[in-house]
Design a protein around this nucleic acid. Structure first.
Lengths: 144, 144
DNA sequence: TCCTTAATGATACTGAGTCTCATAAGGTGG
DNA sequence: CCACCTTATGAGACTCAGTATCATTAAGGA
């Protein structure tokens, strides 16, 4: 199984591989992402990183999404969130209570994609798939 | 198989069932949607319906989404689109060239959802799933 | 028809992201 | 190690989709 960049160094290498410069700001953004290890919003990051401009945060996030270092998730209400990628091709479940993001890779999902490819008139060039859940922890908390 | 509201009258009935008033503006929005029978943006509708305020168009769209008369789709670049619903529980394929939206209902998809429900720690309360394609017509046009 | 309540429109506002453009680094080649 | 060319940055204006406010208007049941 292929793995996506996982550490600071991997993320930096991914940018280098794309012929991009490794700037102090980009390091800061990457470090901040690795520090959290969970879902986050662009605005959160921009607020946290006072030394990095808002535009730069958004620009860097976009680069990192393109390099598969992080991915962008859309909540049911349309709010975008970002989350570090651990597995190359994967989907997400997002807890709508606590915002926890889990990645999963399910061969069943891949199978469906292939079966749909046969049914659909045209070429499938991409897809979006997210599950909205109440995670175990939130359910447990609610039952106290 | 259950079917979702399909005609003007069904859409109006759906609003009535929800205890909402049938206003001239809402009739106009519904009529404009039925006139197209395809994907559209909120802003398109607001421009077309000069007699209806922008806020009202958005409000009505939201009600219609809630009543399963239309559904909201998100393109890969994040652009939102709306499309009339024909089938109750379904997913979409959107052609990224021409914007054509197709609905499909696939029992395989439902099966995956159930299998994932078992794997995921927590309750699945919803999901989002969209396929981005190049439709047959666009492929044919490109091959000329 | 009257009257309560819900809906509307104009407009200001929010949130997420992009654009512009002058200024400030990166990271080679010498 | 320096100069230089190019890429990246920051500040702030702008866009796009949608929401909030609130005074005014109109549904539709009694």
């Amino acid at each position: 199984m292929n793995t996506a960049p996982t550490s600071q160094l991997d993320a930096i290498a991914a940018l280098e591989d794309a012929g991009l410069r490794i700037t102090g700001q980009r390091r800061q953004v990457i470090a901040a992402i690795q520090r959290r290890k969970g879902g986050f919003t662009a605005e959160e990051l921009a607020t946290e990183l006072e030394g990095v401009g808002r535009a730069t945060v958004y620009r860097t996030l976009k680069l990192l999404v393109g390099a598969d270092v992080i991915c962008k998730i859309v909540l049911p209400d349309g709010t975008p969130m970002y989350s570090p990628s651990r597995v190359e091709h994967h989907h997400h479940s997002v807890c709508t209570s606590c915002g926890a993001v889990e990645e999963f890779r399910d061969i069943t999902v891949e199978r469906v994609l292939r079966s749909l490819a046969r049914e659909i008139d045209g070429d499938i060039i991409g897809h979006r798939m997210e599950f909205y859940i109440r995670c175990g922890a939130c359910l447990a908390a609610a039952n106290d």
